[in-house]
Design a binder for these strands. Sequence first.
DNA 1: CTTTCCCGCCATACA
DNA 2: TGTATGGCGGGAAAG
Length: 355
Amino acid sequence: MESLGRHSYSRKEKSLGVLVSNFLKLYNRDDVDLIGLDDAAGRLGVERRRIYDVVNILESIGLVARRGKNQYSWKGFGEVPRALSELKEQGMQERFGIVPCVTNSEMVLYDEAREESLKLTSDDQENSPSPRLDSKKEKSLWNLAQNFVKLFLCSGADLITLDGATKALLNESQDPLNMRTKVRRLYDIANVFSSMNLIEKTHIPQSRKPAYRWLGSEAISEDQFVAAPASLCDRNEPKKRVFGTEITNFNAKRSKTDCSSKDSKHYGNENTCNENEQQQQCDSKSAVKRLVSSPLAPAGTSKKNNTGNNHSQRLQDLENISSTHKLQYCNQELFGLLGHYTETWRSWHAEFGRK
DNA sequence: CTTTCCCGCCATACA
DNA sequence: TGTATGGCGGGAAAG
């Protein structure tokens, strides 16, 4: 019904936060080990690019680990504490505690002597291949995410603003242009972390400045369990990938890896992907919903099952129904009673067909 | 207006 | 070469 309702689009529905939430809901299970990027993208109905974002950030916490091309492995939440403590230690060793950050009050302690945090000790003598391999990683989402948590873990600060974090993590490069980009990334990361309750968004006491507070690694769970009940209710339509984005997204991910060639491809938009979801025990009261979505064509591979197709499909259906029923109800009484209805329908049908 | 941040172009890395 | 990965920043929604 709302597929026609034009402006049902909301940015929030497509945020990295909900993506991650769905991602966790999907893979946070004991029996899950390998995660295929294509599979994830397909199941979640997003472009592959977004999966990279999610996975990179999750990896910084140890939730997942790169297994190889197209493959990540699911480590559990059990791994998180370990990873965090490791990060903390790492951060302590570096200058991470002392940087422009926010105290409980609201003051922004300006920078300080963070100059020689350079790797005087571990200068070169590292990766032989590329000299600039380092710079590459420094800018990665993965690295940024780790540094972000280090900030929380190492500085005594309770609240941290993205602004402050940016300045702290930006190596002296006060360039405003650089900062813009950095903040964007931090927003991404913060959204992910807060969606899994690792951090929480608040405000600095007096000023209205938004800031983040660190929550332990314990309150992380809860929401990402199988969660059958809640997910079923709003299971109506995917509503992501409404329209407009279609044409541009040509993700020619042929891939098909090898192991499981069971792919339904990305075009998981529209009414295709949701059905048959998983095989969870969610059928408690799902039966009711099931009926509603069936009328539409099974779609399948056609990427462009536009409205035109639907109409003709609909027509076909009606036609079938009408013929069947005509044979069925040969009772004179009924026929007479419904006569004008069928007549009306017939004329409508004719007109519609003409158009 | 400013803050938040999604989208997807396209540079790199890799096979 | 083709594919996989993921910086990066435009610009639009949200506030």
